[in-house]
Design a protein around this nucleic acid. Structure first.
Lengths: 187, 187
DNA sequence: CTTACTATTAGTAATAGGTACTAAATGCAA
DNA sequence: TTGCATTTAGTACCTATTACTAATAGTAAG
């Protein structure tokens, strides 16, 4: 960036912004961005309390590791505890604060949805199934820490279309129900 | 961890499993786990093609950085490009490989859903809204790299119940539609 | 028992991306 | 010009490694 020279305050403000945008920048790269020496960058980080590259990367990795494994990382959200291919299955998802709205501690809908959808896909055992149509209903809010038990059942199958119902419970209480039509596209 | 000594093959198999479970383990820690020298661990990693700690951490961080910001990290999935509180809004979500099934490159349903749901919540501007009921339909598969444009419209409001329709497009083609009933629980 | 071979361990130099510190040089304003 | 903040330079040290050479241990076959 052709920035010639900025006053200290301004540079530090931008440094912080840049690192928030991209925590993977090395001091070397920053030094070139701001056209100052590497020592100045280090002084700046010290004054701003910004840790070194490796610590920043580690932090990003740690914060997200468990979270991502549960949503989007693994193909299946939740733990599969029972499965009869083509018939039914049960999965358990332990919820935590990271899945909830900060203010209310209520679990965000898409986590419940993701568990149900991925369970539905697991029971029909077609690697590349798509959710075609869903009719879903959230019946009761779920709080962080509660254990979601999702039960799926294949109710009908026509060619490559699979009709799966999923009911999710916290204890005895039903919190979600979804009707999935999955289209398998195995060649 | 009281494992005394394992044959090479077995050790390498477990090493791999351990690192999949926890990529944050150093060679030093692994050496203690398996009761061998640090050189043996390094040979093992070399043979198995497993990169060093920092590379592993970096990989975890990189894979998840954008992903987590978009799902579960931020309250809003996708970028809000237009918003009229209580009326309508538009959000754009750039998809990538990390959101897709590896084999088919088709975007997983819950990402599309999450974008729509969070846009629906954004337009009614109630911090702690719950998705009460949804009737949703995936109309066409979305491929990694395509840009999802979601348009939301508040169609009705009764007390603390908000009825929002969301239509998602890739270009001119509609790929998703969802009807959300959001219940705001502002006191 | 010796040979052969694999598996393991030891040790050295070099690397990236730093920390922590001391000291010197520069900029600028009163 | 004096004074102080800012910037730069330079050194030693750090961690978790790679890449490499070399020595040692363990075991099985002849």
């Amino acid at each position: 960036m052709g920035v010639k020279r900025l006053p200290k305050k301004e540079r530090q403000k931008r440094l912080k912004l840049e690192l928030e945008k991209d925590p993977f920048l090395t001091d070397e790269e920053l030094m070139q961005m701001f056209n100052v020496s590497i020592q100045t960058i280090r002084l700046d980080r010290l004054e701003l309390g910004i840790p070194e590259l490796r610590q920043r990367i580690k932090k990003v990795a740690e914060q997200n590791y468990s979270k991502v494994r549960s949503i989007g990382g693994a193909e299946i959200v939740g733990e599969l505890v029972d499965l009869n291919l083509g018939e039914n299955g049960i999965s358990i998802l332990e919820t935590d604060k990271s899945m909830a709205f900060k203010k209310t501690n209520v679990i965000k809908g898409h986590h419940i949805f993701a568990q149900a959808e991925s369970l539905a896909m697991a029971v029909i055992d077609a690697d590349a199934a798509l959710t075609g149509v869903s009719n879903i209903k959230y019946k009761n809010p779920v709080k962080a820490g509660q254990k979601l038990i999702a039960k799926a059942e294949v109710v009908r199958r026509r060619n490559n279309k699979h009709f799966v119902h999923v009911f999710t419970y916290v204890g005895q209480e039903q919190v979600f129900r979804g009707k999935f039509i999955l289209v398998s596209i195995d060649d």
